[in-house]
Design a protein around this nucleic acid. Structure first.
Lengths: 155, 155
DNA sequence: TATTGTTATACTCTATAACTATA
DNA sequence: TATAGTTATAGAGTATAACAATA
């Protein structure tokens, strides 16, 4: 069985110095998490990134594309593709900025809000399953530490 | 300044439900970590993945390619490319398995061991900088929680 | 001049499927 | 028939550079 082989390799190399690398741990957990999230979002024809954009578009906070790029740590040019795709599907709309005509404000349509609500529920169940090995307290702690490390790394 | 814009976006959207998504936190921290690690490894012409393979090849544990794939959560075909590249540079070597002629055992050359030691030192300094916002205790805790979540997710 | 969004390009990573040689 | 390694390919993610419209 594949899972057993994987566990065998895990234990056989557990003594290797690399087992405790933050980089490797992050890469593995991120890959696992992305995989599960994208599977959960597939029935809505969304992926992690398009879901993130849709979520912000639903927030009522009137994000500009530049702000989306900064908040999601993506390049502005990547935001263009994501917004293009969601807009072509009628889930979000671009609106010209009121005070600055260069900016484009991204807001969800009624359709977008509906899809988002369903996708959100599916993702939450998925996240819960991902952190099943942790207690409620540990899950909160993990999020807090990730957030703290992140804020430090940006400064 | 760019960092300030980023922080402005962070705070403006901090109330949005998505801010606390494990998936987003992992994606952002992983991206940041990979970026820094790859920059640190660039002077050795290594990347996170090739460094991981080289590290295991240096461990003396005689890993097969299949075991590398399982331990690193990569597809066997991806291991082929990584091993090809490191072998062509004379840093590692493939050896036929003793009991099973199908398997190939990957071991570092003297050159590989030398490069690895230098790269390892550079990476450790880099990791320390990445987790600078955390106390020593918090860093240990983060690694422990990542490992625990990971083991649960594989079962 | 500087910034927002856009287009374009090249490279890396991810996901599959099929093939070969051994077992 | 099953497994280890290999080859091939397509799609997603990452990193830059250049450009038009607006500030």
């Amino acid at each position: 069985m594949k899972v057993q082989n994987k566990i065998r390799a895990e234990t056989r190399f557990s003594s290797a110095e690399i087992s405790n690398d933050v980089g490797l741990l992050l890469a593995k957990l991120h890959a696992l998490s992305s995989n599960l999230n994208n599977r959960a979002l597939a029935e809505f024809d969304l992926r992690e990134r398009s879901f993130s954009v849709l979520t912000l578009a639903c927030s009522g906070l009137e994000p500009t594309q530049r702000e989306l790029a900064e908040f999601l740590s993506l390049d502005p040019s990547q935001i263009v593709s994501l917004v293009d795709e969601l807009e072509s599907r009628g889930l979000i709309e671009r609106a010209a900025g009121k005070h600055d005509r260069r900016v484009k404000i991204v807001a969800a349509t009624a359709d977008g809000i509906g899809i988002h609500a369903k996708a959100r529920a599916a993702l939450q169940a998925c996240e819960k399953a991902q952190l099943a090995a942790l207690t409620e307290n540990e899950a909160v702690q993990l999020k807090s530490l990730l957030g703290k490390a992140l804020r430090g790394g940006e400064a």
